[in-house]
Design a protein around this nucleic acid. Sequence first.
DNA 1: CCGTGGTCCTGGGAGC
DNA 2: TGCTCCCAGGACCACG
Length: 273
Amino acid sequence: MRDMPELPEVETTVRGLAPFLEGQRLAAVTTFRPDLRRPFPADLAQRLTGATVTALSRRAKYGIVSTDRDDHMIFHLGMSGRWRTEGGEPGKHDHLLLETAAGHRLFLHDPRRFGSVDLVAGDPLAAFAAFVTLGPEPLSDAFDAAHLVRAFAGRRAPVKAMLLDQNVVAGLGNIYVCEALNMARISPLKPAADVPKAKIGALVPAIKAVLAAAIAAGGSTLRDFLSPDGDLGYFAKDWRVYGRAGDRCECGGSIVRVVQSGRSTFYCRKCQR
DNA sequence: CCGTGGTCCTGGGAGC
DNA sequence: TGCTCCCAGGACCACG
């Protein structure tokens, strides 16, 4: 099963794009349709063309391309977005092209068009509305048990919903939440406020571990950036529970699929309580 | 404020 | 073979 772009996939994408873009002048910027999830910024091409890329970075599930004009292009891959680096001509689902002065052609490819591209001037952490209320980066020291204890206090929503809330912790999606809850042996259905502190203490390292392992797996596929079909942001992984209804959990229990807020949740009824 | 559910989008798989 | 149906889900918004 192809995995959706969550934090590790965006991190891998940003690392993979960096060699093509950092320090490079953008010779041409082209859009092939007016919008993805939202319209492209009307002045995107005008503001990026001729600028030099100074840095690639990531916040939550967003990638950030910064230029020497202090403009920051912020992209989100939605559920089917990726960057194609092999060049060539635009295909049906290529919606944006960045051409560098060195001759690289990078296509933003997104069949379902759930992604987005925005452009802000000045500090993106302050200038991009979605960033202002974001929770901490899960791999940072700011994300610890004390933070989750505070965030969960008094909340009756299922712990799974809380972890998907980007304002609680930034960058987790359906897959890694399911995986981390299994590792920490917490039922995704349990109200957040009812999760014992000891289990929150186990949840934090579980989240860090599943993300770090996924980034490491993605890093090992970076060589594929230069392959003929050079997809970025996707790599096969073996999930503990995600997509595995009917299989055995590590503990011997049976993995089940339930629906929460219209989304699939996979967990083990035996060890996740 | 809180929690839930609808909406957007299209490729791919299942079922007939 | 070809058609229809349904599922995947991040961010955002409208309710009650």
